[in-house]
């Protein structure tokens, strides 16, 4: 039987106080917003009868974002403008949707498909030097991996493929860092983990951060060295 459902891709921000929500909290909040919107969402046939919605990769607690995404399966095709307005009206403004469009119903899961991120990081500290930050990050990349703790569990992330590029700029308040990362089924590099490791290197010995603000400014799919926009209408998904 033909699948007569529709896959609506929605882009939303995460800012203000809600930057401190964890990924599960974001998922719950978005799902409740969708229910409030009254859109004809599709419900899965599993034991738990969950709404059919997929999210892009988890954003760390405390990180802001200008571009997060979810794909929502609808039972009926609703005009995208109308759907977006309904979602906006039903969502907390700090998780506000700003763009929606239909994408092919069948295709890879969003979380795995959007595998490239651009981050803007503000590292505050009066004495911080952009060169030192850059050197510290280079040393971490050179080391090939970072061993770190998440809660009380030891974790390792390799840095050769996950850290794509970085550019540190000197500012009056500290250092502005633009960071490009790549995720795979082996994991995703979080800016805070990278910076913690960088500040442990010789280049940044004794350097003090008073605070840092992490914001994901974009996400893409990388294929054959090309970056594909999440809403790219010309991109044909490989369904094999």
């Amino acid at each position: 039987m033909a699948d007569e459902t529709f896959r609506l891709r929605v882009a939303y921000r995460k800012d203000g106080r809600l930057a401190y929500l964890g990924h599960l909290e974001v998922i719950n909040t978005v799902e409740r917003s969708i229910r409030r919107s009254g859109l004809p969402f599709s419900v899965g046939n599993g034991f738990a009868r969950r709404m059919r919605v997929q999210f892009s990769q988890a954003l760390p607690v405390g990180a802001f974002s200008e571009g997060e995404y979810y794909d929502l399966v609808l039972e009926e095709e609703v005009d995208t403008h109308e759907a977006l307005e309904l979602l906006k009206a039903a969502s907390p403004s700090a998780l506000g949707p700003y763009r929606a469009a239909y994408v092919p119903r069948r295709g890879p899961a969003l979380e795995a498909w959007l595998n490239r991120s651009l981050w803007q990081v503000e590292i505050h500290g009066e004495e911080l030097s952009a060169d030192a930050v850059s050197e510290g990050i280079a040393a971490v990349k050179e080391a090939g991996k970072i061993d770190f703790m998440r809660g009380d569990k030891p974790r390792t992330i390799e840095t050769v493929t996950t850290l794509v590029s970085w550019e540190a700029t000197q500012e009056a308040w500290g250092v502005a860092l633009a960071l490009e990362t790549r995720s795979s089924n082996l994991g995703a590099l979080r800016p805070a983990v990278l910076l913690d490791a960088a500040f442990g290197t010789e280049a940044l010995a004794g350097a003090v951060r008073s605070s840092q603000r992490v914001c994901r400014s974009g996400q893409w799919h990388e294929e054959n060295g090309r970056l594909v926009e999440p809403f790219d209408a010309n991109f044909t998904w490989s369904l094999t």
Binding site: G16, R17, L18, Y20, L21, G22, E25, T29, R32, S33, R36, V61, G62, P92, A94
Partner: peptide, 10 residues
Amino acid sequence: HPARYLDHEW
């Protein structure tokens, strides 16, 4: 759980 202290709930 910083969400305990955020307010601005729906």
